[in-house]
Every structure is written in C-alpha cells, then in structure tokens.
C-alpha cells in the first residue's frame, strides 16, 4: 500500500476530493435556497411584522432557553409549533392576545419552577413575535415535530 499511496498522491486526493464535494454542496445549497424561498416558507408572506418578530426573538436571545425547529437550548419548550399547541395557527388576533398575557405573567416566581424572565415589549413587538412564531409554524419542516408536544 505504501508504494501506491505516496504522500503526494494522498495530498492530491485530498485537494481534488474536497473541491469536488464543496462543488456538490454549493449546488445543493443553491437549490435549497430557491426551494426555501419559493416553497417551504411560502405558506404565509414574510411581512414586516414577521421580520420585526424575528428581531425581537433575537434581541432577547430566546434561543438560549427554547428550541425553534429543534435547534437552540433544551431548557424550555419547543416553539416551532407553539401556535398549533395554543390553537391559534390561523388566528393572528388570539395569538397576539395569548402571547401578551403570557409575557406579562412572567416571571411566575413559583418556587421550584423554571423561570422565564420579564421582557418589556410594546404591543407592536408582541404582535411581531406572535406573527413570527405563526409564520415559522407554517413552514414545511418535513412533518417535524412528531406530535403537538413539540
């Protein structure tokens, strides 16, 4: 083996193969980008409200307790399907109201329960957040999660 696989050959296989797999990867990502924009996230429009909601989500680093489509911290419930759990999948007004009363009730202060911090948000921001989560819930995630529990 040592005669067939010289160091120079091993190096060439490494560079050539890596370029090949990078090219395949870039093509697949390019197609996926198109698929995401036109198909899997097109059920609801990406409105300004949704964009504001994503910014609110990021500013308060919700991802470091919750998961969203299974990614994030594992300290608090999955939120990719929370509007399904709340029964407000197609009801933006009720989604906003539940979200507002939920946020205003935090932290619960109950001894021995995990605490969600209080976030001072305007009604516009709360509406953005509920619309962002409703938008995310409408994304086609290949039927994940397996059930409403998230």
């Amino acid at each position: 083996m040592s005669e067939i696989l010289t160091k120079a050959r091993a190096r060439n296989v490494f560079y050539g193969g890596s370029l090949f797999f990078t090219a395949v990867f870039v093509l697949m990502v390019w197609h996926s980008h198109h698929y995401i924009v036109t198909k899997s996230t097109a059920a609801l429009p990406l409105t300004e409200e949704v964009v504001l909601g994503k910014q609110v989500w990021e500013r308060h680093s919700c991802i470091n307790c919750h998961t969203l489509h299974g990614e994030g911290a594992y300290f608090a419930p999955e939120l990719g399907n929370v509007t399904t759990r709340w029964g407000v999948y197609d009801d933006p007004d009720t989604a906003f109201e539940i979200m507002k009363s939920w946020l205003e009730a935090q932290p619960s202060g109950v001894e021995g329960r995990r605490q969600m911090p209080f976030f001072a948000l305007t009604d516009e921001e709360i509406r953005g957040l509920s619309e962002f989560l409703r938008w995310a819930d409408h994304n086609d995630t290949q039927n994940w999660p397996p059930n409403d529990a998230g």
Binding site: T6, F14, G17, F21, F25
Partner: peptide, 30 residues
C-alpha cells in the same frame, strides 16, 4: 504526514455533505 492527508480527506469528504444532517427539519428539501 501521509496519515494526515488520509485523515483530513476522510474529514472533508464526509463532513461537507454531512452538513445535511442539520438540514432535516428546518425547511430544506427532503
């Protein structure tokens, strides 16, 4: 050094398209 090239070949040949295991449920194609 010959070992090293074999190791890093294994790493990139599997790891680049292995990114796919994060693209199961986020809205990317099946």
């Amino acid at each position: 050094e010959k070992w090293l090239y074999v190791i890093v070949s294994c790493a990139l040949f599997s790891g680049i398209l292995g990114t796919g295991h994060h693209y199961f449920w986020i809205g990317t194609p099946s």
